[in-house]
Design a protein around this nucleic acid. Structure first.
Ligand SMILES: [Mn+2]
Ligand SMILES: [Mn+2]
Ligand SMILES: [Zn+2]
Ligand SMILES: [Zn+2]
Lengths: 162, 162
DNA sequence: ATGATATTGATAATGAAAATCAAAGTCGAA
DNA sequence: TTCGACTTTGATTTTCATTATCAATATCAT
């Protein structure tokens, strides 16, 4: 039976064709691996792929991830740390994030009231809103996972300010 | 008469003393220059200082800016570009920002309703909110300044996603 | 004034991400 | 199927903002 990934591969193939780009083995592998995650960094995906497939250059991971973003399958995010996190937004509507400083858990949420107020704020100050970035940082109450997990040697600092 | 800066220099001196740090000519210069701006990058401040004062090493600018952040006089921000913007928050309450993609104008705003809803969202998902990052990107209607200004060779891209 | 301690500045080091470029792969046309 | 124009890959170098080094210099409590 055609799997979810098969469908996406086909879709990717079409997207690529339109742009005179080619469907390569590497792109299939990256797409496949990327879709198995919700939020992942290029480096992490590189490691993940290295475990189960033949070697793929890190440059290719970056290039393909950027390509997926152009195709609307992924979106770049910048949570606390200094490395870009790629958000798998396939079949997802707009959402913002809650990030746990301690265990790094990321929860997606959406709040139409906030979105509406953002519009109002922009309007009030004479701006035509195009985009926004909203991230909530704190500590999750996930005893099972958070408490004993990553007792952060690197505090996974997000935004120490605000 | 004692100027605003004099007051701040005195305050800085006290803050430093408590931490066994010393008040240097360089720190005075950086503080003075920093307070003349609302939002500025290390590099920009470096250039600005270079025009009116004796030379100050870029490393010193960075070190002092970080120090000011520790003292609560400044806060690091990351708007679109890849360089850190230092927010002069002296005598300012919490606020978020509206950024113009075209001319780079930055407007500060605050919305208690949004802040409240953020709390609710965090709570709803089992998070203890510690911090947040909210930035609104778009285009300002400042005909005078925006329309004819920086016809961005570098589009001052912010967050192309979300 | 003096010395213990902190700071500066020139420069090297970092590290994530992008740029290079020759070798290899893809795919539409023949 | 074959061919070649065009794209992609991977190894490596480059970029660029920020931090780390460290010897020389400045600060300040006593
Ligand atoms: Mn997400
Ligand atoms: Mn501000
Ligand atoms: Zn957690
Ligand atoms: Zn503008």
């Amino acid at each position: 039976m055609a799997t979810e990934v098969d469908t996406e591969i086909t879709h990717l193939k079409n997207q690529l064709a339109q742009r005179h780009l080619k469907l390569t083995r590497q792109r299939e592998i990256v797409l496949d691996a990327f879709l198995k995650n919700d939020h992942i960094t290029a480096e992490a995906l590189y490691q993940q792929i290295a475990k189960t497939n033949a070697h793929l250059g890190l440059a290719t991971i970056y290039r393909t991830l950027n390509l997926l973003c152009e195709l609307g399958i992924g979106q770049e995010r910048h949570f606390g740390d200094n490395k870009t996190t790629f958000d798998n937004v396939l079949h997802k509507k707009h959402h913002d994030h809650l990030i746990c400083y301690k265990c790094g858990k990321i929860v997606e949420f959406e709040c139409s009231e906030i979105e509406k107020l953002q519009e109002e704020m922009a309007d009030k100050h004479g701006f035509i809103l195009q985009n926004h970035k909203l991230e909530l940082y704190g500590y999750c109450k996930d005893i099972e996972n958070c408490e004993k997990s990553i007792t952060t040697p690197t505090p996974a600092v997000g935004v120490p300010t605000s």
